[in-house]
Amino acid sequence: MAGWTARRLTCRGTAEYPFSRPDTNAFEDQIMASNSDTLVTVFGGSGFLGRYVVRALAKRDYRIRVGVRRPELAGHLQPLGKVGQIHAVQVNLRHPASVRAAMRGSEVAVNLVGILTKSGRQTFDAVVAKGAATVAETAAAAGARLVHVSAIGADPASASAYARAKASGEKAVLAAVPSATILRPSVMFGPEDQFANRFAALALISPMLPLIGGGATRMQPVHVGDVATAVADAVDGRTKAGAVYELGGPDVLSMREIMRIILRVIERERMLVPVPFLMARLMAMGLQFAPGPLKLTPDQVALLRTDNVVSNTATAAGLTLQGLGIAPDSMEAVVPQYLWRFRKAGQFAPKGA
């Protein structure tokens, strides 16, 4: 085995390629040629996680078909790969015929489709549960491998409709494709997130930030790039068949601690006000129709009743980022790179101002 190295290529292009291989250009060309013959269909590839997954797969030289509801709004994906490598097509998971068309000739399906709040016909059951079943059944019929992204907290007994739908989707996926890989990330952060950006934006318009349930709920925020690398590793076939991976960052933080990190980064002082769950639910009845960072739904309040962290079982089994050989980035290390825009003087704010 002398002369062999294990390299992994992440979506940020700073780490290394995920195959043990001789360190020669000829072997690298062989690997890339193999991947370039493989078509991967990514459902929901234009969203927050999607753009990072598409970039990670493009760097590994896969051909990528991106299934989205509005292909004309997916132009931002094209520069992530070479000319002709990435192609967006119209897909709606509520319409099985469009899913079948998107899967034609594809060897791997990646399902990233998810919604945080329901709207019209885009309900948790229709998109998260039945949509996952449609993708899985189509992949099974096509003989394609399947990577399905769910979420930590997926639980058929949860008080949250979102979490119940996620659990239902996982069950449908494994019923149709028992060898599928399921990835459950904790709350994701990154430049386009609806997490750190949301609370930073709220701090601009409010003198106080609410701590629902007292801010004791624990989370394990994970960088979107690390999740994308895990998805690409699963496409490569580096994950265990039929396994459920739980993906969390290096730190377990309470919501109070997360709020303090955000306020420290944006250099603003705000009151952190504990709000009991019952009061938060009553507030959410009205705020579920609010715009922007003010929006809060009763289902989101229900989610906050349960910690969102990697389980001891997943850690012991190696079904984590670390188990895949990925060293996750911390929230404190990454969020200053994009939350600076919420400071009073933006990127030009002097330290300690």
Rank of each mutant, 00 (worst) to 15 (best):
T229C: 03
K240P: 00
A216D: 14
D236F: 00
G190A: 05
A232S: 13
G215T: 07
V231F: 02
A230M: 07
A201V: 10
V231D: 01
L209S: 05
E192R: 11
A230L: 09
Q194D: 07
R198Q: 09
G190I: 04
T217F: 07
V227I: 12
A234L: 08
M208V: 14
A200D: 10
T217A: 14
Q220F: 13
V235A: 00
T239S: 11
T239L: 08
A201D: 14
L211W: 05
V235P: 01
V227R: 09
A234W: 03
L202S: 01
D226Y: 02
L204D: 14
F199N: 01
Q220G: 13
G237T: 01
A216P: 03
L211H: 06
L211P: 09
A200W: 08
S206L: 15
V235S: 01
G215E: 06
V227K: 05
K240F: 00
T229M: 08
T229E: 14
V227W: 07
Q194I: 04
A196Y: 04
R198M: 14
G214K: 04
G215Q: 04
H223Q: 14
A203H: 12
G215L: 05
D233L: 07
I212L: 15
V235L: 01
D233H: 02
A203T: 03
Q220D: 12
A228H: 06
P191G: 12
I205Y: 13
V224Q: 12
G214F: 11
P221S: 06
L202E: 02
Q194H: 13
A200L: 12
P191T: 05
P207I: 13
A200R: 10
M219C: 14
V231R: 00
M219V: 15
T217I: 04
P210L: 09
A200S: 14
R238G: 00
G237A: 01
L209F: 11
Q194T: 02
G237Y: 01
V222R: 14
P210A: 04
S206V: 04
G190R: 07
D233G: 00
P191Y: 06
Q220E: 15
L209V: 07
G215A: 05
R218N: 10
H223V: 06
N197D: 04
F199E: 03
L209R: 08
E192A: 13
I205N: 04
A234D: 03
A230V: 05
A234H: 09
A200Q: 13
A230H: 08
A232G: 03
N197Q: 05
Q194N: 11
A203F: 13
T229I: 01
G225N: 07
A216L: 12
T229R: 02
V227N: 06
A203V: 07
G214P: 09
R218M: 15
D236M: 01
Q220A: 10
A228L: 08
A200H: 11
